[in-house]
């Protein structure tokens, strides 16, 4: 993972797998949950990220302290779809769901989910953009908008707004070329007064 992607790169964000050394490594089985290995050295499935890399990503990109996740484990089901879970379970595990999807990997720029940001985003202090009233409403309605004042990294940001004299994280926005694109999925979008 690099730092902020540049504008041309980000438009190309796709589902391309990171080319891996496939020697002796298994393929991901999309029908079950597998717990992430602790470190890259313990990897047994091609292209699978490790817990260490996930914690590094959240710390490097959003300054979320790694100890935030001391009571959680990370899992992959579906290539690149990372789940965060607080309960007990053996690996591998073939059930419907555990915890929540938190991160999309196996693409050039990793992307946290809206649900993850709403749950853990208060721990973030970097790549966080606070939106004003009308901007926040456009964001949750799923609209893209021009925001000139941001001079931080481009790429995926955590969007927050102030409500009840404190800030609350709303979700993920993709910032490129002075524009913030709302990544709030359709089913979570709202038209709020």
């Amino acid at each position: 993972m690099g730092d902020g992607p540049d504008g041309d790169d980000i438009a190309e964000i796709g589902e391309t797998d990171i080319a891996g050394d496939s020697d002796g490594l298994e393929q991901n089985d999309g029908q079950r949950f597998d717990r992430l290995p602790e470190t890259p050295a313990e990897r047994t499935v091609e292209g699978r990220v490790s817990r260490e890399e996930v914690l590094e990503y959240f710390a490097d990109r959003f300054d979320i302290p790694p100890e935030t996740f001391d009571d959680h484990t990370f899992w992959e089901k579906g290539a690149g779809k990372i789940w965060i879970y607080a309960g007990e379970a053996p690996t591998p595990l073939a059930i419907e769901a555990i915890g929540m999807t938190c991160l999309r990997t196996r693409q050039e720029h990793w992307k946290p989910t809206t649900d993850f940001v709403q749950r853990f985003g208060t721990h973030a202090s970097d790549c966080v953009i606070e939106l004003e009233g009308p901007e926040a409403r456009r964001f949750v309605a799923g609209e893209d908008q021009e925001i000139d004042r941001w001079d931080g990294d481009w790429g995926y940001l955590i969007a927050t707004h102030e409500i009840g004299s404190d800030v609350a994280p709303m979700g993920v926005g993709l910032y490129v070329h002075g524009e913030l694109r709302s990544m709030v999925p359709k089913g979570r979008q709202r038209d709020l007064p």
Partner: peptide, 23 residues
């Protein structure tokens, strides 16, 4: 997911003959 319940595991079985095997 919307409510951030990370301690939840979801299964799809008939509860009358529920198996503890996955756990």
């Amino acid at each position: 997911e919307r409510l951030g319940a990370t301690s939840l595991a979801v299964t799809n079985h008939d509860a009358r003959n529920y198996s503890m095997k996955p756990f």
